[in-house]
């Protein structure tokens, strides 16, 4: 059974490396955020796998939980930052030519 877990772990790692391709070469910044989110979720599984192989799951599981929470917060924060950042660039463009405007103001996101 240990062999099987090691195989699963290595396969996960290889697939995460393949996802890293999108993170490095992704055409836009938001593609990179998407790739990092996926890698983060799978890291949680990998941490617990390492814990089971090590025989100390009850310690590793707290780390995994904290990692899952942090990953979620990081994704939300990064995409929010990207959103704000792109809005600043967009208002400059819109002053030049009046493209059909996106609904820029959203309820509940100010402040």
């Amino acid at each position: 059974m240990e062999q099987f877990f090691i195989t699963i772990g290595v396969a996960l790692l290889l697939l995460m490396l393949a996802t890293l391709y999108r993170v490095i070469l992704g055409p836009t910044a938001i593609d990179r955020i998407l790739g990092v989110n996926i890698i983060g979720i799978k890291t949680v599984v990998l941490i617990i796998l390492v814990g089971i192989l090590d025989g100390r799951v009850e310690m590793f599981i707290d780390i995994a939980f904290a990692y899952a929470l942090l990953n979620f917060i990081t994704t939300i924060a990064a995409s929010r930052f990207f959103q704000r950042h792109s809005q600043k660039a967009l208002t400059k463009v819109e002053e030049k030519d009046s493209a059909p405007s996106a609904p820029l103001e959203r309820p509940g996101t100010e402040g």
Binding site: T28, I30, F72, S79, Q83, S86
Partner: peptide
Amino acid sequence: LIVFFVFIASPTATHAIIDAGYEARV
């Protein structure tokens, strides 16, 4: 609990990402 959290958090994170991308006119 981690599984439950992933089931709630993953669609929310997806939604945040696609909303940001839509607003930035990807």
